[in-house]
Write a protein that binds this DNA or RNA. Structure first.
Lengths: 351, 351
DNA sequence: ATCACACATGGGAGCGCTCCCACCCTACCC
DNA sequence: GGGTAGGGTGGGAGCGCTCCCATGTGTGAT
């Protein structure tokens, strides 16, 4: 169909101007229709829409971005070197949630990879230059410069895994504290009394909160918190093994372990088995994340489920709201939302 | 530093023109320097680079895209409704590989979610309108209209998981055939003689190739292929369970199972255990994918590892090469590359 | 000294859109 | 009947860049 000389790959695509000509109206009117402005009469709108359909017109994003100074796209910053983020199921699920939230809009999703601190610093400039409308930050370290830079540049951003209790950026987290409490309460219910914990890296706020929850549950139940029952891991399987070995050496009488992640629980399980401890008969084991590992472990692992997909969706919703917010920067700053989503204990055979 | 009235969020950013003024040269010259053209004298280049550094200039992507009719970005199409793609470890690893390959370039990565066929159809138009420079297609069904549409629109694309032996698009796959052969050869080596297989959905070409490899290994070893030993799964755990139940009913004497995916192997394992068959003593089990599940299963699952991250990297390299190729469409079509990457058998306790 | 040519450079003309101002026309009011 | 809104509309003026042509400017051959 249609001839006209093709201009590069994909052939020529109709422009706003051509739609306007076809519909017998001006450029401005077509623009108004495309952008859903109410200031267009019903019949004009119909005529334009018909022309759009006939020509198969789709607006040119680049031109729109240039003229309107917005990109209709947001970026997810992927902390590349950290395998934890790429580890199951975090990454996929977050992205899935983001995708779901974005499906209703015509926003695009950009994936950017941040390496070390140097790269992160240049990334901030990069992001602002590319005029991404907003940024989703996941799994950020306490000393990461990126969040502050984004705030300084006044680029809307939402963080998952807040850096501290008073995170200045909008944030969405799961309730690590309550999740840990539920896990430990469950172990107490099961009659366990010597409950150890393997923590994640404590410079990750969420890991600290899980430890807090563990302590709180014990204290509230009237049990003293024995520091010998706390071992520090680093979210890796190997760290889980080391921590478990340590715990067993310090307190051979322990009868339960709450691990700050499923992966660490897997490492712990291996040591427990090597040492001849039966799960759950001798030692009950509970993890955190409810990843695929938990379901397939032997015995299947009781774990605290985080609503990760929902976190991705919520983050996106919050970000879109921030982007849409046209009030002055100060007002926007005050309105920043800190959202905490509930966790859920999934009981399986390991406890 | 600098005043000037800010224009929207993020403040005003320097333009090419300002850099040119600062360096005392014309716009064209700055453009040449930015884009690495050789037709600039050494000292002019130095002057421009200094001005760029002083001003912290970063080119405006939208303007560049509009003027040059290219976007410096590629899209990964995510087949959203299929959980298989989001399942461990495919998605993360592919993306990881793509990110690695993109790190050396200044290309951006766009994630687009394709729902049903309708959405996919409109997506093609969308992609061409957004002027993505190229598209990465993963996990495509035999009857997906998107690949053909992309070809029709002459948008560079690379597919992973080719649809058939004569895939017209450039493709990158792992060697499913050889991987399956290696798995079955390994079982034969172990002295197993009644080897069953659980296939994935056979409208996925890779699943068919795995079945082919299974048959080929048996035939070559002088064993007849017994159709009763082949059961069809669908890549899900539940499908694995159903297939295993079927197989056990048909051939209670089987002594090994080659599953077309780790997830299906997990399902099979569950049935085997319920039926009182010990792994590997009574029945040896081998999976495909070498996912986290395989490492954490009990006993750890022997599995065929696919170099998924490398596939992502290779796909991206091929795509970038296609984008850079300026020859006429016909010549480009002829040069399309079909790459097959080697798999590797990872031996664990299940066999 | 003259011509030719390559190389380096400046800047006009757009890319396709949004924004906004000016304009027109049709009520509606005094 | 004239004045006044105000909704509806057209189109100029950019957004910041690349492309390309025109214009120097220096070098070597004639």
């Amino acid at each position: 169909m249609g001839s006209g000389q093709p201009r590069g790959r994909g052939g020529a695509r109709p422009t706003l101007e051509e739609v306007a000509a076809r519909a017998g109206v001006g450029r401005g009117t077509v623009s108004r229709v495309i952008n859903g402005s109410p200031r267009v009469s019903e019949q004009t709108r119909a005529a334009v829409e018909e022309a759009v359909a006939e020509l198969g017109y789709v607006p040119n994003t680049a031109a729109r971005a240039l003229a309107a100074n917005r990109t209709d796209s947001i970026a997810v910053v992927v902390p590349e070197p950290e395998s934890r983020f790429f580890a199951e199921p975090y990454f996929s699920d977050i992205i899935h949630g983001v995708g779901t939230a974005l499906a209703d809009t015509d926003m695009q999703l950009l994936l950017t990879f941040a390496g070390g601190d140097r790269e992160r610093r240049s990334l901030a400039q990069y992001l602002s230059a590319h005029r991404v409308d907003g940024v989703l930050l996941v799994s950020v370290h306490a000393d990461d410069p990126l969040p502050d830079l984004l705030q300084q540049l006044d680029i809307p951003a939402v963080i998952s895994g807040r850096r501290s209790a008073d995170e200045p950026l909008a944030s969405v987290d799961s309730d690590n504290f309550a999740g840990a409490r539920a896990a430990v309460d469950h172990l107490l219910d099961r009659g366990r009394r010597t409950i150890a914990t393997i923590t994640g890296r404590l410079d990750v706020y969420g890991a600290q909160r899980r430890l807090d929850g563990y302590r709180d549950a014990l204290t509230e139940a009237g049990h003293p918190v024995d520091e010998a029952l706390t071992a520090r891991g680093d979210f890796t399987e190997d760290g889980g093994r080391r921590a478990m070995t340590e715990l067993l050496a310090r307190r051979p009488d322990l009868d339960a372990v709450f691990a700050g992640s499923d992966v660490m629980a897997a490492g712990a399980r291996q040591i427990l088995r090597e040492e001849g401890r039966r799960i759950p008969d001798d030692v009950a084991l509970v993890g955190f994340d409810d990843s695929a590992i938990a379901r397939h472990m032997d015995p299947p692992l009781t774990s605290v489920r985080q609503p990760i997909t929902e976190m991705g969706r919520t983050m996106t919703d919050v970000l879109l709201a921030e982007i849409a917010d046209t009030r002055p920067a100060a007002a926007r700053r005050l309105a920043r939302r800190q959202i905490v989503l509930p966790t859920e204990l999934v009981r399986r055979a390991s406890s």
